[in-house]
Amino acid sequence: MAASITPLHPGFPDGEPELMSVTVSYGPNSQSFEISLGSTLDSVLSNPYIREIIGFRDDGKGTVRVDGFSAERDWVLSPNANIEVIKPSGEKA
């Protein structure tokens, strides 16, 4: 659950945008990221860097909760939002 803060955009010629921190969880993985203020849920879930770090296996269309509530993909995230994509249960045993 270590929360390292990782800028998504290494450089901005026109100046740094205002950033906010959000936490993304999927299965055993959970990590915080800094994203632009006003970002939507979809922009986070479709971000290749976040998908790689968090380990999304599917298309990210599973059940998604933001701060414990269901959210649509165009939901505008607030600072410190907790985003969880529900990982399907293991099938075998």
Binding site: R65, P88, S89, G90, E91, K92, A93
Partner: peptide
């Protein structure tokens, strides 16, 4: 349950006729 190299455990508790935690089906469409 597990897939090849990962998996999960769910705990569903009912007490006095009330759900203390959610059933296995909650948030798990599969």
């Amino acid at each position: 349950g597990n897939d090849y190299d990962d998996g999960n455990v769910q705990v569903y508790v009912r007490c006095n006729g009330e759900d203390v935690t959610s059933p296995l089906t909650y948030l798990h469409d599969e």
